[in-house]
Design a protein around this nucleic acid. Structure first.
Lengths: 224, 224
DNA sequence: ACAAAAGTGTTGTTACTACACCCATGG
DNA sequence: CCATGGGTGTAGTAACAACACTTTTGT
């Protein structure tokens, strides 16, 4: 029920996007370094005000494209952060989103909107503006639980990957080692992936078979 | 990152609250019948615009108090619904919340804001205004999964309850029958509840022992 | 005495965990 | 031929599912 008679509401709606990727065997978050006063030099999640005719998901998608150039990635709404004093410049609520992107596409788009755009390992984040530290923490919890009962691991991998790479995605996100044989047995039972017939050679050891996900969209399955 | 230079944003932020309760052995949602044109007579979730100095959770709590008189209940943010055309009167995003209330407190507060306020069984809902049907569905999914890995069942029960009543909460929310002995064994192992020493007598059968939850706040445990 | 729900254990089956060696390649 | 990660099976254990009768009360 909406009150249409109330005095004009002075609240703005923004979207912040927490973009995660695995690089160098570690989870990384994409952060931008702010240009605008009084936040100049501070690191923050990429975001922006919601525009009149877009959904928050479209806004998150737009922000993702602006900062990474990526378009087809996993994206979901996280939650809305709405503490009245979260932005010192006025009342702004943030409809936070999570994006998961594969390493191969993790190149960054330079932009004149920001001083810098950079991947940061989640274990060594700089101080963040606003309540963005909370948003990152909430994102990590969400992804950690969701990787256990869905196939979202596809979103962090290239189209073709080895079983060891897949296992590392789980281990890195869950921050927990897994048994190689048990993991492979489980993955095999679930029929989520299929062998491509290709092999990854060129390294000084036996080449690994390459696999792909049958579906690169959200499927609910108990993996771990 | 917020753009502070943009032209004034014409988006309003509202909060809708999906209040659930178990009555007559079935899940019910609290709906209000709208007074205002052009929605007169339509049923909807109770809600209202977010006020300047309150969080969305405080707004949900306020709405809950207005429609039921309840103050101390389980409340959590569901998600934000932000389709541009979800409200024909203008751009209004809804930060939807879920509230779970026990049957004993499910009496309703009359209000001059609405034509009527009523509990509806989730299996027989009337047509709902806006996107409120989606909000109710999303709520039901959330509660159904969350009751399986937390102790939120406490929020749907009176302070004292029998084991059969507790089991029925799980069965009704999950829409699935459970085995009595296995359920009791599991509940017993988890140490979530304790016997009060009281008994529920007055019925034409053996009186059931009454229990209470040790903690009436969110605890993560795999129950089912 | 009868109806109605409360209360209570065991057993077979399935799923999970722990664990070690050979293989294929590049250098 | 050596170093490196790839690839594979089994056995013991723990968790889960299925199942039926006795007890206590009110009428």
């Amino acid at each position: 029920m909406i009150k249409h008679h109330s005095s004009p509401q002075n609240i703005k709606a923004a979207v912040d996007t927490c973009i995660l990727s695995i690089q160098d065997d570690e989870l990384h978050v994409l952060l931008i370094q702010m240009k605008k006063q009084p936040f100049e030099g501070q690191w923050a999640l990429p975001g922006g005000l919601l525009e009149e005719e877009e959904t928050s998901e479209q806004a998150a998608s737009r922000i993702l494209k602006e900062s990474t150039g990526l378009t087809q990635v996993y994206l979901e709404q996280l939650m809305t952060f709405d503490e009245p004093d979260r932005d010192p410049a006025g009342r702004v609520i943030s409809i936070a989103h999570v994006a998961l992107v594969p390493d191969e596409h993790a190149s960054l788009k330079t932009s004149e909107k920001y001083l810098d755009v950079k991947w940061w390992p989640v274990s060594k984040l700089p101080p963040l503006a606003y309540d963005h530290k909370t948003i990152v923490q909430t994102t990590l919890e969400r992804v950690k639980t969701k990787i256990q009962y869905t196939n979202i691991a596809w979103s962090l991998l290239a189209k073709e990957f080895t079983l060891t790479e897949l296992q590392r995605v789980y281990e890195i996100v869950m921050d927990q080692d897994l048994d190689k044989r048990n993991f492979r047995k489980r993955i095999n039972e679930l029929h989520l992936i299929q062998a491509t017939g290709h092999k990854r050679s060129g390294q000084a050891h036996r080449p690994a078979a390459l696999y792909r996900f049958k579906e690169r969209k959200l499927v609910y399955v108990q993996v771990v």
